[in-house]
Simulated assay, not measured.
Amino acid sequence: MNDSILVVNAGSSSIKFKLYRIDGADLAPLLGGGMSGIGGTPLLTVKDGRGAVLEERRFTPGDVPDASAAQHHLEDWFAHHRGAESIVAVGHRVVHGGPDFAEPVLVDDAVLRRLESFIPLAPLHQLGNLDPIRVLRQRRPDLPQVACFDTAFHRGHPELSDRFALPRFLHDEGVRRYGFHGLSYEYVAGRLRDLAPETAQGRVVVAHLGSGASLCALKGGRSQETTMSFTALDGVPMGTRCGALDPGVVLHLIEHKGMSPAEVGHMLYHESGLLGLSGLSNDVRTLLASDRPEAAMAVAFFCRRVAQAAASLAVTLGGLDAFVFTAGIGENAPEIRQRIVAELGWAGLILSNDANRSGVARLDAAGSRAQIWIIPTDEERMIARHTLRLLGRAAPGATA
Rank of each mutant, 00 (worst) to 15 (best):
P42Y: 03
L31K: 09
L31Y: 11
A52C: 12
Y20N: 03
L44S: 04
T45E: 13
S36E: 10
E56Q: 14
L27C: 10
G49V: 14
P61Q: 06
T45G: 08
L31M: 10
L19E: 04
D63Q: 11
G37R: 00
M35V: 10
Y20S: 05
F59A: 08
L54V: 09
E55Q: 15
V53C: 02
R58I: 13
R57C: 10
I22E: 02
R50M: 06
D66Y: 04
V53M: 09
L54K: 09
P29Q: 11
R50V: 03
L31N: 03
R50D: 06
V46P: 06
P29C: 01
R21P: 05
R58M: 15
R57D: 15
P65G: 07
F59R: 08
G33A: 01
V46M: 15
P61C: 02
D23G: 02
I22H: 00
D23I: 03
P29H: 04
L54Q: 11
M35K: 00
E55F: 15
L27F: 07
A25V: 11
G40C: 04
Y20G: 05
R50I: 00
D63A: 12
L43W: 04
I38G: 04
V46Y: 09
R58K: 13
G62D: 00
K18R: 13
G34E: 07
L43A: 08
L54T: 11
L19Q: 06
V53W: 06
G49T: 12
G40Y: 03
E56W: 10
G62H: 01
P29S: 05
P42V: 07
L27T: 07
G62W: 03
I22V: 12
A52S: 14
G34C: 11
L44F: 15
P65Q: 07
L43C: 08
G37H: 00
V64N: 04
F59Q: 06
G39C: 02
L31G: 05
G34A: 14
V53K: 09
G62S: 00
D26T: 09
G24A: 06
A52L: 11
F59H: 12
Y20E: 04
G32V: 02
D48M: 08
L44I: 13
E55M: 15
R50E: 10
K18M: 12
G24Q: 05
L44M: 14
G39H: 00
G37V: 00
F59W: 13
T60L: 14
P61E: 06
D66R: 02
R57A: 12
I38Y: 02
P65W: 06
F59S: 07
G33D: 03
R57L: 09
T60W: 13
R57G: 11
D63W: 01
A28C: 12
D48K: 09
P65I: 05
F17G: 13
D63V: 01
G39W: 00
K18Y: 04
G37F: 01
T60V: 12
A52Q: 14
L43P: 04
D23F: 01
R57K: 15
P29L: 08
K18I: 10
L19G: 00
E55Y: 12
L44Y: 08
E55C: 11
L19Y: 02
R58F: 10
G49L: 12
D48I: 05
R58D: 09
L43V: 10
Y20I: 05
A25P: 06
G32C: 07
R50K: 14
G24M: 01
